[in-house]
Amino acid sequence: MDFGPSSPPPGAASTKIVVAGGFGVGKTTLVGAVSEIVPLRTEALVTNESSGVDDLAATPMKSTTTVAMDFGRITLGDDLVLYLFGTPGQRRFWFMWDDLVRGAIGAVVIVDTERLDEAFAAIDYFEAKGLPFIVAVNEFDGARRFPVEEVREALALPADTPVMTIDARDRGSAKAALIRVTEYALERITGMRTSVPQY
């Protein structure tokens, strides 16, 4: 059977979850803990002028920098593959997130309680895009422990945004974060449906 270039076989699907957060917060660790492959690295281009890649066509010699993105893969059956993309959380990488969040199920924002402010850019972005996200507090050894409600308050999160603590090194814990964000994405859809007036 030939499905043509843009019509994939019925049923087969691939999808993604974004893992965001400040530097060194445990993004690659979480991806590696649940991925069936050692996290791979790919790069996106940034021009120094931040004018977008289109300018490169006119001046292909212009110096560019690249932003690295780690990703992992989880095969969830014969016909479904989930990709996990770890991406740095700074505002200047937003150009890359536009591409990354399109079609994503949701995002896990990893935070370190010592540096909560590094999560603001990612949270603002996902809120603005309407992408379902959860906040996962990575409990580093020796770090002070904060109740999740304090983290929620410090990050000014809506009451329904899930906040959980994780150990990014632990497969079960990383998996629990992925399940939570997927459940939340589903709740958001079914919630939307039940709030639609029925005729």
Binding site: F23, G24, L45, V46, N48, V53, L56, A57, P60, M61, S63, T64, T65, T66, V67, A68, P88, Q90, D112, E114, R115, F140, G142, A143
Partner: peptide, 20 residues
């Protein structure tokens, strides 16, 4: 200990490339 990374891990400084 909290690891601190700087941007250089992610942004490889001004490499001249002709990507396109």
């Amino acid at each position: 200990m909290t690891p601190h990374h700087d941007d250089d891990e992610h942004v490889h400084t001004a490499r001249i490339v002709r990507p396109y």
